[in-house]
């Protein structure tokens, strides 16, 4: 672009656009865009349209059907009742452990590996283990019975608790790894500075580390919540899929593959997505109230 002629306004515009982040590097986003469109947007809009074309009645009749039937409607509550506490527990349990492990120490890799192993197990294997361990004739109950702490086995599988434990076991490693990386992104000198200013470890944690960690915790909560909300295998394997743990994904599954009513299944999937979005929106709104800038660490 040398000087005069039509080149100049063009260069000018290019400069203006680049300032707003529009330049050739945007092409790097193309693969991601294709991916998102093919794997997310297309199925989403396909399902959305389908949900408005029920086999009987007007465009909203499948939604009306879901909300008018208390057995169906209740699945939302059932799922939230499992997913929210499980996600919360995962995050809360991850914080102290990750906090303790953020520095360097001997055997750190071993401990991290042990904590992360459940990821590799998958839900089915975890369910199997839970049945063996917590079932009516599992070790846990046998120990309780043998030590005369209880008269009859405590029911911890094929009900709410079975699913809850399974979600904690599979969700914790994710939460832990995320929290650990958020924590190591916080400059350790900040806590040392707080110490020289007179803060004991409790106040160093609550005044410095925790506020800086909160945005990360919110994100972690959202991710583990989404994982838990779409719980399906463990709800069937270690839960009580006809009652207490008839989660919303199970309702969608039954509509699609037992009643072959795809529009209705789509409607349930849409409702499921909407509930998730509401929860995430609430959490992210709370997150934005915290400081979310650089925390000076190694990221």
């Amino acid at each position: 672009m040398s000087g005069a002629g039509p080149g100049r306004p063009l260069a000018h515009w290019r400069h203006r656009l680049a300032e707003r982040g529009v330049d050739r590097q945007l092409w790097l986003l193309v693969p991601a865009l294709v991916f998102v469109i093919a794997l997310f947007l297309y199925p989403f809009f396909y399902g959305l349209t389908l949900s408005f074309q029920p086999t009987r009645g007007g465009p909203f009749s499948d939604y009306a059907r879901f909300f008018s039937d208390s057995y169906e409607r209740g699945t939302i509550w059932i799922t939230l009742r499992i997913a929210l506490p499980a996600a919360l527990l995962n995050v809360l349990a991850a914080v102290p452990i990750a906090y303790r492990m953020r520095g360097r120490f001997r055997g750190k890799r071993l401990v991290t590996t042990l904590l992360v192993v459940p990821i590799t197990l998958g839900t089915v294997l975890t369910a199997q283990g839970l049945l063996n361990f917590l079932g009516p004739t599992g070790w846990f109950n046998r120990i309780l019975l043998a030590s005369n702490l209880v008269d009859e086995p405590v029911r911890l599988t094929h009900n709410y608790w079975g699913v809850f434990f399974s979600l904690v076991i599979t969700g914790f490693p994710f939460a832990f790894l995320l929290v650990l990386s958020y924590l190591s992104g916080i400059d350790p000198t900040l806590e040392r500075a707080a110490a020289t200013l007179g803060a004991d470890w409790r106040r160093r944690f609550t005044r410095i580390t925790l506020p800086l960690l909160m945005p990360g915790l919110a994100t972690t909560f959202c991710l583990t919540f989404v994982l838990a909300f779409s719980v399906f295998p463990s709800a069937v394997l270690v839960g009580n899929p006809a009652g207490e743990t008839r989660v919303i994904s199970l309702a969608a599954y039954q509509a699609a593959y037992e009643q072959y009513d795809y529009p209705y299944a789509s409607a349930i999937a849409m409702i499921m997505g909407f509930v998730e979005l509401v929860i995430i929106a609430v959490v992210l709104a709370a997150r934005s109230r915290f400081y979310t800038g650089s925390t000076g660490g190694k990221g």
Partner: peptide
Amino acid sequence: GFGMVFQSYALFPH
């Protein structure tokens, strides 16, 4: 109760 100024300042960013 000693005050310290760190090389990297270590100001609390939040």
